[in-house]
Computed example of a mutant assay.
Amino acid sequence: MADTDAQLRILVYSSNHRTRDQVRSALGRRIHPDLPELSYLDVATAAVVVEQVAAGGFDLLILDGEAAPAGGMGLAKQLKDEVAECPPILVLTGRPDDAWLASWSRAEAAVPHPIDPIRLGEAVAHLLRNTV
């Protein structure tokens, strides 16, 4: 059983506040009874993502591949190349066929827009189970 006082920290990056809201709404506070509660940090710019990830403390990064001007896939590749202990990354792709680009970016998972709460929840739970 998970420690009820622990929280898993997720950074959610998108230049679109609606996308960030959709991610948080789809995942909620707890995605599975065996995992601790989730806490979120919403980020709208790539520079802040880099700063926050360098500071550490995140269990998962969710990056919007459709963000502008810096897309989540390029940002994922940059983070994987530059941050020694980069947390797992899930990229939100523009379409299912873009999964190969997410793989190129070294993201551990990809979920296409529009956000499907079940598909996103399953992918996030899988990634978090491997980090807890």
Rank of each mutant, 00 (worst) to 15 (best):
T45N: 07
T45G: 05
T45Q: 07
A46C: 01
A47L: 02
A47P: 08
V48Q: 06
V50T: 13
V50P: 03
V50Y: 06
V50I: 15
Q52H: 14
V53R: 13
V53H: 13
A54N: 13
A54F: 12
A54Y: 11
A55V: 09
F58R: 07
D59A: 15
D59P: 11
L60S: 09
L60C: 11
L61W: 10
L63C: 03
D64V: 08
E66V: 06
A67C: 08
A67D: 05
A67G: 11
A68Y: 07
A70T: 15
A70P: 00
G72L: 01
G72M: 01
M73V: 02
M73G: 03
M73L: 12
G74F: 03
L75F: 04
A76F: 01
A76C: 10
K77G: 01
K77R: 13
K77E: 02
Q78N: 09
Q78I: 00
Q78S: 08
L79K: 12
L79M: 07
L79Q: 05
L79V: 06
K80S: 03
E82Q: 15
V83G: 09
A84P: 13
E85H: 15
C86G: 13
C86I: 08
C86S: 12
C86H: 08
P87E: 07
P87Y: 05
P88L: 01
I89R: 12
L90G: 07
V91F: 05
V91H: 07
G94T: 02
G94N: 06
G94C: 02
G94S: 09
R95Q: 01
P96K: 00
P96Q: 00
D98F: 01
D98N: 04
W100N: 04
A102N: 09
S103L: 12
S103A: 15
W104E: 15
W104S: 15
S105W: 08
S105K: 11
S105D: 10
S105C: 10
